[in-house]
Simulated scan of single mutants.
Amino acid sequence: MAEQSKEGPVALIDTDPQGSLASWWNERTSEAPLFARVEIGKLTEHLQALSKGGIKLAIIDTPPSVTEMIQQVLRIADLVLIPTRPSPHDLRAVGSTVELVENAGKRMIFVINGAAPRARIAGEAAVALSQHGTVAPVTLYQRTDFASSMIDGRTVQEIDPKGRSAEEIGQLWKYVSTQLRKI
């Protein structure tokens, strides 16, 4: 969305050993967003080089488990988005991430992700998460177009620009970009 709303260019950085962001990007036919391979130990230098090269926004994907890598990313992050599924397991697991973000003194926003439409647990998750920080006012619901987009490197906006998933992502980006401008 940042590229589409002219708030780019954007660089994606995948620090998750699973490499799902890199796999998705490798399937893309579009050159935007840029994919940046970085050494985690030189993250600050890499980000400075990207900025000098005209990159306006770097999005860094981290592993879901608490690692030293996450702590390194938190040191330089402006804003931390914590995607959280509305399930008891995910809600219990988020505590260690919250502690890391708070210790780093960074601003965080929870994003409820993969929610089942009309399931009451999404609202309950939002209430529980709000006790630890800000919850984005947009919920991302579980739909097949998200999974389909992972197959061939497209975004949900590219699959169905007028679809509900594209609308949710658009609303989420509008909210996140507003929060970034406040920093």
Rank of each mutant, 00 (worst) to 15 (best):
15 T>Q: 10
141 Y>A: 10
97 T>S: 09
16 D>T: 06
49 A>V: 07
152 D>F: 11
175 Y>C: 07
121 I>C: 03
82 I>R: 00
156 V>P: 01
115 A>E: 01
148 S>Q: 15
12 L>N: 11
157 Q>E: 08
176 V>K: 07
148 S>G: 12
33 P>K: 07
169 I>G: 00
140 L>E: 11
30 S>Q: 13
77 A>E: 10
100 L>A: 13
20 S>F: 04
40 I>Q: 06
125 A>K: 11
163 G>E: 09
32 A>L: 12
86 P>C: 03
57 L>R: 12
84 T>K: 07
61 D>S: 00
64 P>G: 08
176 V>P: 01
135 V>R: 04
112 I>E: 08
49 A>K: 15
51 S>T: 14
115 A>S: 06
46 H>F: 02
160 D>L: 08
101 V>Q: 12
53 G>T: 00
49 A>D: 08
5 S>R: 15
23 S>E: 13
58 A>G: 01
154 R>D: 02
177 S>F: 08
121 I>A: 11
91 L>Q: 04
145 D>P: 10
24 W>D: 03
147 A>N: 06
114 G>P: 02
159 I>P: 00
61 D>Y: 00
3 E>W: 06
148 S>K: 15
178 T>V: 02
119 A>C: 03
133 G>T: 08
133 G>C: 00
51 S>W: 09
178 T>S: 12
138 V>C: 01
22 A>R: 14
20 S>G: 12
141 Y>I: 12
109 I>M: 05
173 W>S: 12
54 G>D: 06
2 A>D: 04
100 L>V: 08
9 P>W: 06
29 T>F: 07
117 P>Y: 11
42 K>W: 01
143 R>I: 07
126 A>Q: 10
134 T>P: 01
95 G>R: 15
9 P>Q: 04
28 R>T: 00
43 L>R: 02
172 L>C: 04
123 G>T: 09
10 V>P: 05
183 I>S: 06
102 E>R: 15
166 A>C: 09
106 K>N: 07
94 V>T: 13
99 E>C: 08
33 P>W: 05
50 L>W: 03
124 E>I: 14
56 K>H: 03
36 A>C: 01
50 L>V: 04
147 A>S: 15
112 I>R: 10
127 V>L: 14
17 P>C: 13
144 T>P: 02
10 V>I: 11
28 R>M: 00
159 I>H: 10
73 V>E: 14
164 R>H: 14
164 R>L: 09
75 R>E: 15
35 F>I: 05
170 G>V: 07
110 F>C: 01
20 S>L: 08
33 P>Q: 05
54 G>V: 07
60 I>P: 03
87 S>V: 03
91 L>N: 03
95 G>N: 13
23 S>Y: 09
145 D>E: 14
96 S>T: 14
176 V>F: 01
34 L>W: 06
104 A>I: 01
148 S>R: 15
85 R>E: 05
11 A>G: 13
183 I>R: 14
31 E>A: 15
182 K>M: 11
80 V>L: 03
69 M>D: 15
79 L>Q: 02
151 I>T: 13
4 Q>I: 13
